[in-house]
Every structure is written in C-alpha cells, then in structure tokens.
Design a protein around this nucleic acid. Structure first.
Lengths: 360, 360
DNA sequence: ATAATTTCCGTTAACGTACACGGTAATTCA
DNA sequence: TGAATTACCGTGTACGTTAACGGAAATTAT
C-alpha cells in the first residue's frame, strides 16, 4: 500500500512532489482552509501514497502550546489504599511525556461522595485539556459530566470502570470475571478437601462495583464447570456482606459466621480488604484458612509474608493508568488508534514472588 | 541544589548567562576543545548551577547521525523456542526508538555453537554500534570478544546471563534462585501428600546454564527451610539428567525413572521443555502428576490448557530485552544511569490466567 | 617587524514542523 | 474600468541542538 522505500517522507518532500510550498501542505494537513480543492486533493493523494506520518519529534519542538491530558481518579487519602496504585503509573507517564511537551492535569475525588466527582471533573475541564482519562466509579450517574466531553469534542478513555454507552476512545481495565476464575483455581489447587468456602462482600451502595460481582461470578463459575463438578458439590459458598461503616465490624460478622460454619477452609475476598480478615484470624489465633484476596497493597503484603494470606490477585492498576495515558497521548500526538478494550494481566502472587511486584 | 524556577534552561540561556555564543557552549558540552580554561569553567558552572539537561527532542532532530544499538542474542530458529521471546521485546523497543533516530543492529547466533557467538558479535561490531546488548550464554568463554567493547569504549548491558567481572553498565535478568522457590511453593501448596519429586535436567555442556542450577537450588532450599521441615523430609528429590541429543530420549529415561519411582507426584522442570514430559505422560495416558515448568511458549501453553502442566513460571524475556535496550538508549541519549542489576518479575501462570500473558 | 600559525570563539545553516504574515492573482463591486 | 475583496499560496521565523565554517586576536616563527 504505502511506499516504503527507506526514508520516511516529510512535509517538505510532499511539497516538492505536489509542486506547492510547505505552507500549503501544512494547511491541508491541518485543514486550515485557504486551499483550492485541486491542490488539496493532489497533496492528500501524495500523503496517502507515501503514507506520510508527522514527525512527532519535530512537531513537539515546533509547537509552542503544550498538550494537556486531564486525569480524574479517586483520592488515595481515602480509606482505601488501593487508589494509591494508579498514581504511580500516572507519575511514570507524566515523566515520559514531559519531554514531548505534554503535561498532566490531575484532580482527585472522594470515591464515597458522588458530588466530589463532578467537582474534580469540572476542575480539570476548566483547564481545557486536550484529552481526558477517567475512572468513572459512579457509572451512569456521571453521564452528565461525561457528555460535556462529547460536546467539547475532547477525546477520553476510561480506566477501571467500563461504563457502557459513552463515546470513549477505549477502556483500560481488568477482566474481573476471569480473575475470579483465577482465584478459584488457586483455591481448587490449594485446598485438598474443599467444603464450605467463605466469600466476603462489602456493603457499599455508592460505588459502581460491578467488577466485584464479576469476580464472585467468575469464582463460582469455575467450580460449576464440568471439569470440576466433583468438587463443586462440596464448595458450598457462604456469602456474607459486611458494612464496614458499622461499629464493631468486621469483627462481629466474622465471629458469628466462622462459628456458624466450622467447615470453612477457604476464604475468598474479592476486594482489596483481605487484610481485614487476616487481621481477624491473627488476633484470634485461628489457623488453617486458605485466604485469597486482591491487590498488592502494604497491608496485604504483610499478611502474605506472614502466611496469613495465601495468594493475592493483582491486575496492575499502575500499568492500567500508565497505558491509558500513553495511549491517549499517542492518539493525540500522532493519531494512533486505541483498541476498544485493553485488559491488563492477572497476576498470581504469593509469598515467594511478591518481592518483584512491590515497587512497580 | 539545582534551580528549578519553572522553565528548564537551554543552551541558548547558558550562552547568554556566560556571555559567550551557543557555539562555545556546545563545544564545552561536547568537549570538542578549542575553548579556554576560563570560559570552560564559567560555562560548566552555569550548567551545574541551573542543572542543565539537553533537550533530547531537539538533539534528535538536529543530529544527522543515527544512534546504533547492537544486539547479539541466540537464534530462535534453533531448536529452543524460548529464544523467540526476547525478539518481541526487541521489535517493540525498535519501534519506539525509531523516532529518536536510533536504529537497532541485530545478529543471532547458534546457542549450541560457541564459534557462532564470535561471528555474530563481530558482525555487529563491524557496524560501529554506539552501544550493545548481549546475551553472553557462553559466559567467560566470550571474554575475548567482550574486552573489545571496553577497548573501543562501547558501553554495553547484558541480558539473561550475568557474567561477573566484565565492565557492563548493567544486567537485565531473572532471580533464578527465587524463581525456584516460587516453583517449590506451588508444589507445596498443590500437592497435599508430597513424597518423591522428580527434577529433570538437560545435559548440555556448552551453554552457560548457571541459572538452571540456581532454580533447582532455590527449589530445594524452599523445602529445607524450617517452616517446611515437616514436608521436606518427604520431598525426596529424584534428579535425572537427560541428553536430548541421544536417540530415544527423553522416552527411555522417563519410562525407566517413573517405573523405578512410583511415588513421584510432583515434577519440576527447571527449563522451557516441560512440554516434553507432558507429551510423554499424555502419550502413555499417565495421570496424577503435578507438573511445574518454565516459560510461556506455545508447546507449554497447550499443555497448560489441557491440564497436563499445572503451573508455568515466567520471567518476561521480552520485557527484559525491551528494558535493556531502552535503558541503554536512555543512557546514550540523555546520560541516564542504569542500575547494576535489574530483575524482572517472576510470574505464576496457570490455565486461568494464561490468556493475558500470551501476546506480550 | 612581518608572516605564519595557533588559540579561541561567533555565525550560520540545517533537522521537520507550526504558524503568522504578506503577497499575487482572480473575482466582485461600484 | 478602476478599486476593493476574496481565494489561494509562498516566505520567513521559531523551537533547541549540532557542527561546519570562518574570522579575529594572540602567539610563534622567520
């Protein structure tokens, strides 16, 4: 299709071939008008034929205005330490992009207060970003804000939460269902005589936590499959919901549940709070629970190293954020397409390989 | 230390502050001489004071000569499909670096023929690379070649095999000992009543396979630790060595070993040939072996999905190659330091999470 | 003392792109 | 028909750096 005779073609070459000046080529390339239909098509034909792509380096050097990428994600100062992770990816991306004269505008919101999302969103939008990265934890409730981007023709990508029906360039997240299956496979391999399995959910009306449900669904799906039918009969999920905002929780519910279900051997916690259960069994000197949780945060790491948690599932939130930003930047800088769905890897982590997952 | 009043300083600003022309600044920056000691120190003082770092973008655009990074690694057309993996990382790095006007010169050698290393090495060296990435599988036997780099003052990094005593900028590899421990931890968790464990080595006199030994060492170490003393008594490693170049192997040795040791439940294969054992037990309709192997190559993936292999350990050879090249490029382009040792993550892979490890 | 070198340094043209600014035709208006 | 638009396009400068070129001053040689 495109001619690939060695060198890549430049705006100057196009001008030469089309018999016009580089100014004219620039005008058609940027659709700034003032070009006759004839020359325009002539230039475009050459662009097409030689597969011209702008030299990002030269463009960066020339362009005085810096590209701005806005980011709206939950605050890590929140009680949930999970939100610290994407920030690492943001810094990394910011560092690499700074030399391309593109800056990052970040604003954080309280994931438990819906109004704070709008606030952070507007704050970023006010600075006229050229593109945005969102973690729309409130899902469809934030549609009104997101629509503004469509109107202003600001391209955006989402991370973590995939909201259907919005006009995003792409989504960067996890395959939650599959990660539940991974957790299940570890339980299946690690607990020889499976009986009751405890699954702990967290009550939270606000946040869009579809992926928590998907993880559980994947977990149960695994055992319901033909190849594990023999074990599935014995899995007997015990699903409890705990409202951490209540005083005395999770103590009360855990104590009650464990005494009522003495056969529980495996515990699956489909969110980043596995350490709470681990804290509990540690304080009560309980043993013999095979605990599988999510996310590489300090509290979980500590228990992994002590052996209270057997496995953690990770999905690289920092890489998700990094990839989202870089993909958006590449799109903005050189028009590269972004795949609709970008799932990150599902990592299996235990005491022995945690070391190399810690700081990146 | 360095002044950070907003804008980053440029060569022009330095010239202004020092009361000289940009030509002079450029001369001291590049140590091209023809500058009096007085002005030189004056310029350097300002460079120091304002923490000047060259603009890589402008440099790339200006510099007519392209940077060349040489790569010498084993050939993937060899019988060992493992060597295909780093190549993926090389292509990725090559793509990203092409816009910085830096090219990659690759040469492959036969990992079973020592002379071929010298050949590939010389081929790359003849093209005067500005830096090199080596996989010195023959270890100290290649010292003679590597010394040439020191003499020619060509910086280099190593991947996979860490040869002591050479003046490399850094090494990109795996913590083989620790990955053996990871394998052991999976066996410990997955096989309830451990007894004899088969460890299969491959005879090979040529290649520098220290890491294979380290993997085994890590594997055994895990069970010998206090916390697993109870099980360790039963692990009883059965280590066999197979020479694949012999006719009838590995069939003969495997058949013999398995019949002699009926108690074997777990099999640890510290190289990428786990699929050979899996092929064997599949053909003979054997069951009940918990197989842990290395490397995400097609043959292993197939068995992972069928269940013949329980777990694979991965260490991202493509990322290693990618990181090595990028670090070297950053060093060459902007003088960034390279850590002495860079270990990649140790991935635990089973049937459920293999999907997202396949194509990257 | 004059010529021939050195030593030291400034000027300038790239690199590929962006964009403001003029300028020349063709067209329309009076 | 002459003036005022409009449509279209070229020129020039800038971005930060590299590096060739050349020129003035200082030094050495004759």
């Amino acid at each position: 299709m495109t001619k690939d005779n060695g060198k890549k073609i430049g705006i100057k070459d196009i001008a030469l071939k089309a018999g016009v000046s580089i100014g004219t080529v620039d005008r058609v390339l940027h659709m700034r008008g003032d070009v006759s239909a004839a020359t325009q098509s002539r230039v475009l034909a050459i662009v097409e034929e030689y597969g011209y792509t702008p030299n990002v380096i030269a463009r960066t050097l020339s362009s005085k205005k810096q590209l701005k990428i806005g980011i709206v994600i939950p605050d890590s100062s929140d009680r949930n330490p999970y939100w610290e992770m994407p920030i690492l990816g943001i810094s990394k991306a910011g560092g690499e992009l700074s030399r391309f004269n593109t800056g990052i505008i970040e604003a954080y919101f309280d994931a438990s207060v819906e109004a704070s999302f709008r606030e952070a969103f507007d704050k970023v939008l006010a600075q006229n970003p050229d593109g945005m990265v969102l973690n729309p934890v409130f899902g469809h409730n934030s549609l009104e804000e997101i629509r503004q981007l469509d109107e202003a023709e600001i391209p955006y990508v989402s991370i973590e939460v995939n909201v259907e029906g919005i006009d995003k360039l792409g989504h960067f997240g996890q395959d939650a269902q599959q990660s539940g299956r991974v957790a299940a496979s570890l339980v299946a391999a690690g607990v020889p005589e499976l009986s009751e399995t405890l699954i702990i959910k967290q009550t939270s009306k606000k946040i869009f936590s579809k992926h928590i449900e998907s993880r559980i669904s994947g977990f149960l799906e695994y055992f319901s499959e033909s190849s594990h039918k023999d074990t599935s009969l014995q899995v007997r999920p015990v699903i409890v919901e705990i409202d951490l905002s209540l005083k005395g929780e999770p103590e009360t519910t855990l104590q009650q549940t464990l005494s009522q279900h003495p056969d529980i051997k495996a515990v699956f916690i489909p969110n980043s709070r596995a350490f709470l259960f681990a804290d509990f069994i540690e304080q009560h000197n309980l043993e013999g629970y095979f605990v599988v949780g999510y996310d590489i945060i300090d509290q979980n790491i500590a228990h992994l190293e002590k052996g209270t948690i057997a496995f953690l599932i990770g999905h690289r939130p920092h890489v998700q954020a990094y990839n989202a930003i870089m993909a958006l930047a590449e799109h903005l800088l050189s028009g590269k397409e972004i795949p609709a769905v970008n799932y990150s890897q599902i990592d299996i982590i235990n005491k022995e390989n945690i070391t190399y997952y810690k700081n990146n």
